[in-house]
């Protein structure tokens, strides 16, 4: 009996009561490292919020006109106009074009890779899409101005298409988010249990019917979440829009400007929120100036937009996910 030492009550007591300062301090250190992420979030909220408050505290700016005016012309010195809508218009317009490009391509790619492709074809096509993820966005921006814009200008005529235009930026941002949509959608479709497919084949469904009527609806929550994530990525994209969509906000007047001639003209440039931040920051920026504070107000708006989209995507997954097996 004496060989089974763990039964020795004295020994057990000794180990149990033993203090382990090293162990404890390591756990605390690791916890602090985990908590740094919370500090980052708080830091973002604090800094963006603080500078935005300073921005709205200026005499020239009011929260009301920021949220309602359709004129963004921050001339320093003279009284500028600070309405966020022209910048939101640029951001949303480019995001919509990007989604029009990326959703069909991304979803079709996902369906093909997940349901049709043979392992060999998949082994070639999937890495090609993954390469797209690794290319820096500034290179996409370069591609937009040296390839996409000239092509558009030669197709539609240089008098219609400006050097900076929304369409070129939108298409290239679309190409940039294709792999995001396709990989998230493919993951969602791969998670659909094989039994569902087999049941459908069993009653005589064709491959297309299985893909579109069984697998696609079953994976819809994951697919929708992927599209929303891609949307948030497009909203936050900076370099392509800064290079290709130009640096002048598209100020408009809802009553008098023609919708397609000006407000929604895809062939002219429009600055986005991210573009404004980047362009303003790349000049000589002095602290506590109106320009400096304005980028934080825009940043805060951008932060909440992307946060909202990401939260939405998680909600979609949670709410509509069908649990199989």
């Amino acid at each position: 009996m004496s060989t089974r030492r763990s039964h020795d009550p004295g020994m057990k007591q000794q180990l149990k009561g033993r203090r382990r300062p090293l162990e404890g301090s390591i756990v605390v250190t690791l916890f602090v490292m985990g908590a740094i992420s919370i500090a980052i979030t708080l830091g973002i909220l604090w800094e963006l919020g603080k500078e935005s408050l300073l921005f709205f505290g200026e005499d020239e700016v009011s929260l009301w006109s920021f949220l309602t005016s359709t004129n963004w012309s921050p001339q320093s010195g003279t009284a500028g106009s600070f309405g966020i809508w022209p910048l939101i218009l640029g951001t949303v317009y480019i995001t919509v074009i990007a989604l029009i490009v990326a959703v069909p391509i991304g979803l079709a790619s996902a369906v093909y890779l997940s349901e049709y492709a043979s392992p060999r074809v998949r082994g070639f096509l999937k890495p090609a899409l993954e390469v797209l993820v690794g290319i820096p966005t500034v290179v996409f921006g370069f591609f937009a101005i040296t390839f996409m814009t000239p092509i558009l200008r030669s197709v539609f005529g240089t008098s219609t298409v400006g050097f900076f235009n929304v369409l070129s930026a939108g298409i290239v941002v679309g190409l940039l988010i294709v792999p995001l949509i396709s990989s998230l959608a493919e993951d969602a479709m791969a998670a659909v249990p094989a039994s569902l497919r087999q049941a459908a084949y069993g009653v005589g469904a064709s491959k297309l019917e299985v893909s579109l009527r069984i697998v696609f609806p079953a994976a819809l929550s994951g697919i929708a979440a992927g599209v929303v994530v891609a949307m948030s990525r497009a909203v936050g994209e900076t370099m392509v829009v800064t290079l290709a969509a130009g640096a002048s906000p598209r100020n408009f007047n809802l009553g008098s400007d023609s919708i397609f001639g000006h407000i929604l003209n895809p062939f002219q440039g429009a600055q986005t929120m991210t573009g404004y931040i980047a362009v303003t920051a790349s000049g000589d920026l002095s602290y506590n100036s109106l320009d400096y504070n304005s980028i934080f107000a825009i940043g805060l708006t951008l932060f909440f937009m992307t946060l909202g989209l990401n939260a939405l995507s998680r909600r979609i997954v949670k709410r509509f996910r069908q649990e199989y097996e």
């Binding site: 973002i44 936050g236 994209e237 900076t238 991210t274 951008l302 992307t306 946060l307 990401n310």
Partner: peptide, 12 residues
């Protein structure tokens, strides 16, 4: 959430 924050916000 942080993984989805646009990089330009980190710049700010």
């Amino acid at each position: 959430n942080l993984a989805g924050v646009p990089s330009i916000i980190y710049g700010m």
